[in-house]
Design a protein around this nucleic acid. Structure first.
Lengths: 171, 171
DNA sequence: TGCTACATTCAAAATGTATTGAATGTTTAT
DNA sequence: ATAAACATTCAATACATTTTGAATGTAGCA
């Protein structure tokens, strides 16, 4: 495979993955392009490379900015806005995870708690089932909070595990 | 809040959450209804309760069946198909997670590996960046495989952590 | 076999989401 | 103040997904 093909496949894959997980494909593709690019890219260059409109590029960059995973850089004597991605894969991961947890997961946990409160206790299997669901979500919540509150520790712990698992696999 | 309101909120929330994570809202709502229902439900009852067509209900049930999180039950002397949900929240979680990992995550990891292979090593920050991304995905992959291969152990471990964390919070 | 009671399929319609690009805002330089 | 060079917005349009329901398939029963 040529490098060019590989780049295209990466961008497409990233976009597809994004779409499957509720992230707009254009947004994901813009980010993929930035990941594959060393220097800063202008809105124009991004729109041209991905064959999307400037408007779309602008919106996509706006969203990536609100997530905090890209950064605006200015070149002296140049009015254009240039963008670079946050280079650290782990930080990108945490930034996205934190946002989605707050916006999407936390409200669900709230609703499950409410549901359980409003539910009569005696009747059948349902209350126990929802109770167990609450338990599961609560555990995931604690786990998530702990991980997100201690990015560095979480990272280190996972890296250690990774090494151990990698060694195991080889040995 | 009345019980009825709570049930509606739960179903809506489950559907919204599903939609945000790339699961069809009708499918998620059908499952939510089954979670909230003690006995088996027929296709007709489901369509009526959720105010969706029989066709839609049929498709949604089909999808839930392929995921293995609902089960068909037959009543003697009744030709209708009735459905119940897998009652165990953890098993539901694992069944969904396993399927999505295989279908969505694994191919992405493959593409990232290819990208890295096809990429010249010397040039700038990009190869290192993609390398780090590969590392992160690899770690998540190992973690996921380990968890999915040992449902019961994973469950126990998380339950223990949950208790410890819960105790900490109160104490 | 033919009838009945159901489930399933799938083309068409409805709905929802993403994209475009002309119009509008903003900043900088003169 | 004006123009030039850009970014942003948003109404219109294109595209994709979801939903419907009539047509079709299937299994049980007489």
């Amino acid at each position: 495979m040529t490098e060019k093909e590989a780049r295209e496949r990466f961008i497409d894959s990233w976009g597809t993955m994004g779409a499957l997980w509720g992230i707009n494909a254009s947004v994901a593709r813009v980010h993929a392009l930035l990941l594959l690019t060393d220097g800063p890219l202008s809105l124009d260059e991004i729109a041209r490379h991905l064959a999307i409109s400037r408007g779309n590029a602008s919106m996509s960059l706006k969203e990536l900015k609100t997530w905090g995973i890209i950064r605006l850089v200015k070149a002296p004597g140049d009015r254009q806005d240039y963008y670079v991605t946050e280079p650290d894969a782990w930080r990108i991961f945490f930034l996205i995870a934190r946002g989605r947890k707050r916006r999407e997961f936390d409200p669900l946990l709230g609703v499950v708690n409410e549901t359980l409160t409003a539910m009569p206790k005696g009747a059948g299997a349902v209350p126990g089932r929802i109770r167990q669901l609450q338990d599961l979500l609560q555990t995931l919540d604690w786990l998530g909070e702990a991980a997100l509150a201690n990015e560095d520790r979480c990272r280190t712990a996972l890296a250690m595990m990774s090494k151990l698992l990698g060694a195991k696999k080889k040995g």
